[in-house]
Amino acid sequence: MARTLAAIDAVRPSTEHTVTRLLTDPGALGPDELLTSDPLAFDLATYAGAVACGTVLRHSLRCRPQLIMGHSVGDIAALAVAEAITPETGARILSARHVLLGSLPSPAASDGAGMLALALPVAEVTGLLTVTGLLHTHAAADNAPQQTVVSGPLRELGILYELVRTAGVRCTRLASRAGYHHPQLTPIAEGLHTFLSTVDLQTPTIPLYSSTLAGPVHTHAQLRELAGHHLTRPVMFQASLRDLYRRGIDVFVDAGPGALLSPLIRATLPTATVISPLRGHPGLHLVERRLQALKGRSV
């Protein structure tokens, strides 16, 4: 983990907000404060945590999955864990994206954009957006049978938030730098694609699966595009999980720090085995014990 964090820190001029400090010092800034004061450090720390944890599970614990899948911007971390890119290259991609996103209004600005998570199926959310005339808000992620994320202008999100809360539906404002998975980010996506065309890419040591395409990615062109899908394409996480299950994969390891995706997987696939080896603050022996369920299974 230390080597991974140091490699990512080396890409960026040293500041008090290095990812090593952010992820290991209890006195470092928290996510909400960091998102406002240093969004690039927030992005890099999120990425670094996922890459470091995924790398440890792959190599130190000899956990070899059949496929690796990211979620949203986690596709960049997935590329690094699968060794299609180096950890440093992923950090450079995020740095280039940071520069491109600098042209957008601040999330706090009146003309800014954001994201909401609603405890509703995607079909109901899509119908609700049509009926209410919120034409610039789109489904950004179909995460689970009862969780849909939408992306759009803050004005429309405010209307939707009040509407669904009045109806007794759970709705959560997501801390987000932009309204991701939205067609309005097409110019940003085009700029990032130009940068990605210059990035060194290797054949992944483990195959990658795209949760935006709900299918595997094979060619180098597809792998390059994968790193930018979070900008304009919706995440089809639920459809991806069901497709993988049909392919015979019935064990899913939530490889990031914590257990953010595990509840979504369990809600979508109640009969699958879902393991969150790094939830809480486990020691190495506890992590290894949690991974015993992987023996002889399709992960």
Score class of each variant (00 low, 15 high):
Ala178Ser: 12
Thr232Tyr: 05
Gln147Glu: 12
Ile85Thr: 07
Gly228Lys: 07
Ser210Met: 06
Leu154Ser: 11
Ser37Gln: 13
Ala78Thr: 04
Asp38Met: 03
Leu128Arg: 11
Thr186Ala: 15
His59Leu: 08
Thr203Pro: 03
Arg12Pro: 02
Thr194Ile: 05
Ser211Ile: 08
Gly191Pro: 06
Leu260Arg: 02
Ser262Ala: 15
Leu196Pro: 02
Thr15Val: 05
Pro31Thr: 09
Leu157Arg: 09
Ala48Tyr: 00
Gly258Ser: 10
Leu23Gly: 03
Thr36Ala: 13
Cys171Val: 15
Glu124Gln: 15
Cys63Phe: 10
Arg21Ile: 09
Val122Thr: 14
Ser298Lys: 12
Leu244Cys: 12
Thr132Gly: 09
Ala178Phe: 12
Thr132Gln: 15
Leu120Gly: 06
His230Tyr: 15
Leu135Cys: 09
Val217Pro: 00
Gly127Ser: 13
Thr212Leu: 05
Leu100Gln: 10
Leu231Asp: 01
Asp111Glu: 11
Glu16Trp: 00
Gly27His: 12
Ala144Met: 08
Phe195Met: 02
Leu118Glu: 02
Ser211Trp: 04
His98Val: 04
Pro270Arg: 12
Ala50Glu: 03
Thr24Tyr: 04
Asp32Leu: 14
Gly102Pro: 07
Leu128Phe: 09
Arg165Val: 05
Leu44Gln: 01
Asp243Glu: 09
Gly127Pro: 12
Leu244Gly: 03
Met115Ala: 07
Ala108His: 14
Leu61Lys: 09
Ala119Glu: 15
Ser103Glu: 14
Ala113Asp: 08
Ala91Met: 05
Thr212Arg: 06
Ile85Leu: 12
Ile249Trp: 01
Ala117Gly: 10
Gly102His: 10
Arg233Met: 14
Arg242Ser: 08
Leu94Asp: 07
Asp75Ser: 15
Gln147Ala: 11
Val150Gln: 07
Asp75Asn: 15
Ala267Ile: 00
Pro153Ala: 04
Ala141Asp: 02
Arg233Asn: 11
Leu269His: 07
Arg224His: 10
Ser298Ala: 15
Gln292Thr: 12
Glu162Trp: 12
Tyr209Ala: 05
Ala78Asn: 04
Val274Ile: 05
Leu201Gln: 05
Val149Phe: 11
Leu23Tyr: 00
Leu100Met: 04
Arg247Ala: 13
Ile188Leu: 06
Leu284Trp: 13
Ser240Trp: 02
Thr18Glu: 02
Gly179Asp: 01
Val199Asp: 05
Val11Ile: 11
Pro187Lys: 12
Gly179Phe: 02
Ala167Glu: 08
Thr132Tyr: 14
Val169Trp: 06
Tyr245Phe: 13
Pro183Met: 08
Arg64Gly: 00
His182Asp: 01
Arg64Asp: 03
Ser176Ile: 00
Gly256Ile: 05
Leu128Asp: 07
Pro153Leu: 07
Leu223Asn: 00
Pro105Met: 06
Arg297Leu: 03
Leu223Gln: 11
Leu192Ala: 08
Val253Ala: 02
Arg290Trp: 04
Ser240Thr: 01
Ser210Ile: 08
Arg21Thr: 13
Thr166Phe: 14
Leu174Met: 11
Thr186His: 11
